[in-house]
C-alpha cells in the first residue's frame, strides 16, 4: 500500500475533521510529495473538499469546524500554536471551485500576494514576479497588453488561470485545487489540465475532482474517499485499472456517484 513515501511534503496522520458534532473526515492518513499530482476523488459529500481545506487551515473560518490528528508540512505540525496561519496559507496556496479574481486589474490581482508578503523590493521586481507568474499560468500571452483591465472582465477559463497565477505569485510549495474546472467548458478545462501538467514537479499539487477521467489524466496518485473515509490511496493507474476495494471499483465503473 503506497500510503507513505520517502520524502513527503505533506503528511497527515489519523486526521479527523468535525463540523460541530458531525464527523466529516474519519481517520485519514496520506502522504503527498513534490513529484506527483495527487487527486482526491469520491462522490458528493464524501469529505474530499473538507479534507483539502484542512491542509491550509481554511476550515478555521468555519464556525464549529475542528481538526484532530497530525497534519505535517515538511515535518512541522500546521495546527501547532507556533505555526503562523498567514504564512502557512502563503506556502500552501489554493485555487477555488468558482474562479474568484478580485475586482481589480489583472496586474493587481497577481501582485496582491507579493505585495502583502513583501516579496518584491521594487516596482521592477514586482513586474518581474507578475510576468513570470502569468507566464507559468499560461496567461501572459493573452493579457500582456491589457494588464490594467479588470480581472473580472476575462472569460471563465482565463479567470481561473488568473487565480492560479495569483496563487503561484507568492511562490508557494503546495497548491490545493478544489474542483478547479467544474465551472469551465471542455476547452478551458483542457488548458487548465495542461497547466497542471506543466506545474507538476515545481509544486506539490493536490486536486479535488468530480471527474474521474480528469483524475486519470492529470494525476499520478489518487485517493478515493467515501462517506468521510479514505477507501483507497495509490498509483492512479493502479486505482483505475486494478482497484483493490470493491467500493472503489463500483465508483469508477459508475455504479454510484
Amino acid at each position: 500500500m503506497a500510503e507513505t513515501t520517502a520524502n513527503p511534503k505533506i503528511s497527515t496522520r489519523n486526521v479527523n475533521v468535525y463540523y460541530g458534532e458531525k464527523k466529516a473526515i474519519d481517520n485519514v492518513s496520506i502522504d503527498v510529495d513534490m513529484d506527483n499530482v495527487t487527486a482526491f476523488i469520491g462522490p458528493s459529500g464524501c469529505g474530499k473538499s473538507t479534507f483539502l481545506r484542512s491542509l491550509n487551515r481554511m476550515n478555521d473560518t468555519i464556525v464549529g469546524a475542528r481538526v484532530e490528528g497530525n497534519i505535517l508540512l515538511d515535518g512541522q505540525d500546521i495546527y501547532a500554536s507556533s505555526m503562523d496561519v498567514v504564512q502557512l496559507r502563503a506556502r500552501v496556496g489554493m485555487v477555488f471551485q468558482k474562479p474568484n479574481p478580485f475586482p481589480k486589474s489583472i496586474y493587481d490581482n497577481v501582485a496582491y500576494g507579493p505585495r502583502i508578503h513583501g516579496l518584491a523590493a521594487g516596482k521592477a521586481e514586482l513586474d518581474q514576479i507578475v510576468e513570470s507568474a502569468l507566464t507559468r499560468a499560461g496567461l501572459w500571452g493573452e493579457v500582456k497588453d491589457r494588464l490594467g483591465d479588470s480581472g473580472t472582465a476575462l472569460s471563465g477559463g482565463q479567470q481561473q488561470r488568473l487565480c492560479i497565477a495569483r496563487a503561484i505569485a507568492v511562490d508557494p510549495e503546495v497548491i490545493l485545487m478544489d474542483e478547479p474546472c467544474s465551472a469551465l467548458d471542455p476547452i478551458a478545462t483542457a488548458r487548465i489540465e495542461e497547466l497542471i501538467h506543466d506545474l507538476r514537479g515545481k509544486y506539490a499539487i493536490i486536486i479535488v475532482t468530480h471527474n474521474m477521467q480528469q483524475a486519470a489524466r492529470v494525476s499520478q496518485r489518487t485517493a478515493f474517499f467515501h462517506l468521510g473515509n479514505l477507501i483507497e490511496f495509490g498509483e492512479t493507474s493502479e486505482i483505475f485499472t486494478n482497484p483493490r476495494e470493491d467500493r472503489t471499483k463500483d465508483y469508477i465503473t459508475g455504479r454510484y456517484g
Binding site: M58, T61, R89, F96, N100, Y112
Partner: peptide, 27 residues
C-alpha cells in the same frame, strides 16, 4: 460582499485585517 472574495484573499495569506481593509471595506 461575496464570501469568495474573502476566501481568495485568505487563500493567498492575507491576514483578517488585510482582508477587511483591502477587500471587504472597499467593496
Amino acid at each position: 460582499v461575496p464570501p469568495s472574495i474573502r476566501e481568495a484573499a485568505l487563500g493567498i495569506g492575507a491576514s483578517p485585517v488585510q482582508v477587511v481593509f483591502h477587500h471587504v471595506l472597499p467593496l
